Computed example of a mutant assay.
Amino acid sequence: MRTLWLTGSGTEMQMARIRAIALISTLAIIGITLAVITLNRDTQAEAPVVESCPAGYVPVNNKLPDSESEVKINVYNATSTVDLARNVAADFTNRKFKVEKTGTDPKKQPDIVAQLRYGPKAVGAAQLLRAYFLNAVEEDGFNIKREDDTIDVIIGGEFKQLATPTEMRQAVAALGNPILPPGTCAQQP
Rank of each mutant, 00 (worst) to 15 (best):
G119F: 08
Y76P: 03
A35S: 08
Q44N: 12
E139Y: 09
T104G: 06
E147L: 06
G31P: 06
L84D: 08
I37G: 05
F142R: 00
N74D: 14
A90Q: 15
A78W: 01
N74V: 04
Q44W: 14
L84H: 01
A174L: 11
L116K: 01
D140R: 07
S52E: 11
A126L: 01
E46T: 10
N94T: 06
T81H: 13
R169A: 15
I154L: 10
T166S: 15
N135D: 15
V99M: 08
V60R: 01
V172R: 07
V75M: 13
L39G: 12
L34P: 02
P165G: 12
I112W: 12
D66S: 04
A85W: 03
V113K: 02
A131N: 05
L34G: 14
R169Y: 11
L129F: 04
G56M: 05
R41H: 04
T164H: 03
K107V: 13
A35D: 13
G103D: 12
E139F: 05
A47P: 13
A55T: 14
D140S: 10
V113W: 09
A78H: 06
D152P: 03
V172P: 05
N40G: 10
V60N: 11
N40Y: 07
F92V: 02
A171Q: 07
F97K: 06
D149N: 08
R169V: 03
T150R: 11
V36F: 05
Y76W: 10
L64R: 02
K98N: 15
I37T: 00
L116I: 00
V36Q: 11
K96R: 14
A122T: 00
M168Y: 15
E138I: 06
G31F: 13
V50L: 13
V137M: 07
S67H: 06
F133A: 00
Q115K: 14
Y132C: 08
E51M: 05
F159H: 03
A55K: 08
R86V: 15
K63N: 15
T43S: 12
A163D: 04
S69F: 13
R86K: 15
A126K: 00
D105C: 12
V75T: 02
F133Q: 01
R95F: 09
Y132H: 09
G56L: 10
L116T: 00
N77V: 04
E46H: 15
D111Q: 11
G119C: 14
A114C: 06
P165Q: 04
D140N: 06
Q127I: 03
A171D: 04
F142I: 01
A171C: 08
I73G: 02
T33Q: 14
N87R: 08
L116H: 01
V50A: 13
G141P: 06
V99D: 09
F159L: 10
N61S: 15
R146E: 11
L134H: 00
L39C: 05
A85M: 07
G103W: 05
V113P: 12
K145D: 10
N74A: 05
E46A: 09
A131Y: 01
V123T: 00
D149C: 10
E100I: 07
T43R: 10
A163P: 12
T102W: 11
Y76Q: 09
K121H: 07
A173N: 13
A85T: 01
A136V: 00
P65S: 08
A45W: 14
G156D: 04
V71F: 02
